[in-house]
Amino acid sequence: MGRASQDNIHTLTIPTQIGTLIIPSATIAEVLNVPSMTPIPFAPPWVSGVIAWRNTAVSVVSFEALLGTSPLPPVSASKIVVLYPLPGRNRWEFFSIMAVSEPRPQEVNNSAIALPADELPQSPYIAAGLKLRDQPFFIPDFEALRKTFYPQS
C-alpha cells in the first residue's frame, strides 16, 4: 500500500440545511430511513425525538437547531445517520443526526483545502471545514457536542 492511499480518510458526507457535514466513516454505525419518532418531553429544541434502533433508543439530533435555525420536518429523502457513542459514554448511548438527503461516502486526502474561518458557520459545534471540488464541508466538534449532550457529566 502506497503512502498516498494510507493518508486517505474514509468519511461520510451528511447533507443538512446548514450545509454538508463530513464525518469519519468509523464513527458511523448505520444510515437508515426515518422511522417513527417519539417526542421527548423537556428535550432541548435540537433533539427531534427518539427512535428505536437495534433494541436501543437513539436520540435524533437536528444540527440545524444546534446552529440556531429551525429544522424542517423530515421529508421522503431524509435519512437518519446513527453514530457510535461519544468517547467516555456508555456503550448504548448511540445518537443520530437527521440528514436532508442520502449521505455519501467521500475519501479525503491531503489535497483537501481547509476552509478559512470566515467561511465556517459561527458555531461552537463546527470544529473546522474542508473544500473538496469547490464544495464546502463542515467538520463537527465532537467534544463540544459531548459537553452539550451530557452537561451533568
Partner: peptide, 24 residues
C-alpha cells in the same frame, strides 16, 4: 440517557425506553 440539561434537580425525567413494534 436523554440528551441535554435535566429538567429536575434529581436528574432526567426518563431513565429507560421500552422498544416495541410500536416504537419507543
Amino acid at each position: 440517557t436523554p440528551l441535554g440539561t435535566a429538567p429536575t434537580s434529581v436528574g432526567p425525567l426518563f431513565g429507560g425506553a421500552w422498544i416495541s413494534e410500536n416504537g419507543v
